[in-house]
């Protein structure tokens, strides 16, 4: 079947507040299939809010605007429905779920996604094979996957586990919220390799980061600069280098 001609993700004039305080204001953003788009910006610019709003976190008030994903109105959908359509958010701070074994959780989520697309559950050997392949790539000890989800995992292990889940769920749109924070150089390499392995003409990435160093490993096609709740500049990879040299000050002032 032909892919729809329009962009995969289209955000139009989105304004969002939390407890009455505006966070995003008139934000516009377009991401196309196959694209790796980086979003850079200073602390408090609204990057994580944007990630949460795309994923459907309920705490935010959508004041105005639209989010279209593959031609569907994303704001009408529950977080699980968005995930079933192919949206994935890799959390900056993955949540601990005591009492639920990581492996059990991953199997349940993978089957939920499959069922939503009319596919049957995976057989256990098939599931185990996929987990083995993905965990080898991400250098995650399989024994760890028997432990409760994210409980007692180091910061780096949690981030690698997010990418492992992403690899298993094979989403259309991967939103990475500061996946590089808390990673040392080796872990950063492993995580980036995991992400790069998933690059595909049918898949898009929205890579949210504070620093340019992640983008040395995950090469973006487009770089957007965010300040005070909106996109204030867009360009090629060279924009990230410029930000690294000059900081965000000029943009923060421009947005004011």
């Amino acid at each position: 079947m032909m892919q729809a001609a329009g962009p995969m993700l289209e955000i139009k004039k989105l304004s969002v507040s939390i407890h009455g305080a505006p966070i995003l204001e008139d934000l516009n953003l377009t991401v196309r299939a196959g694209e790796v788009a980086a979003i850079m910006g200073p602390n408090g610019s609204g990057k994580s809010t944007l990630a949460y709003v795309i994923a459907g976190k309920p705490d935010y008030e959508i004041v105005s605007g639209e989010i279209w994903f593959d031609g569907e109105d994303l704001l009408e959908l529950e977080p699980n429905e968005r995930a079933q359509k192919g949206v994935f958010l890799a959390f900056q701070y993955p949540v601990e779920i005591p009492g639920v074994a990581t492996m059990t959780f991953m199997k349940a989520t993978l089957n939920a996604r499959r069922r939503s697309r009319g596919q049957g559950d995976l057989t256990t050997p098939d599931f185990m094979r996929r987990v083995r392949e993905a965990s080898q790539m991400l250098k995650l000890d399989q024994e760890m996957l028997r432990r409760p989800l994210n409980v007692g995992f180091s910061g780096g292990e949690k981030k690698r586990l997010e990418i492992l889940q992403m690899a298993l769920l094979r989403p259309r749109l991967c939103v990475l919220d500061e996946t590089d924070s808390g990673l040392d150089i080796d872990a950063l390499k492993v995580v980036s390799d995991g992400v790069n392995a998933l690059r595909d003409p049918e898949r898009a990435f929205l890579v949210i980061t504070h620093y340019q160093r992640l983008l040395e490993h995950i090469r973006p096609d487009v770089v957007h600069v965010m300040a005070k709740g909106r996109i204030v500049a867009s360009g090629g990879p060279e924009l990230a280098l410029e930000l690294e040299r000059n900081g965000y000050r000029d943009y923060a002032e421009a947005a004011a």
Binding site: N80, V95, G99, V100, F105, A108, A112
Partner: peptide, 17 residues
């Protein structure tokens, strides 16, 4: 919310917790 972003329905997530 975390569980739902991984495709689980609310009531599946609740019953799992």
């Amino acid at each position: 919310f975390y569980m739902m972003t991984r495709s689980l329905d609310r009531d599946e997530a609740e019953s799992m917790l």
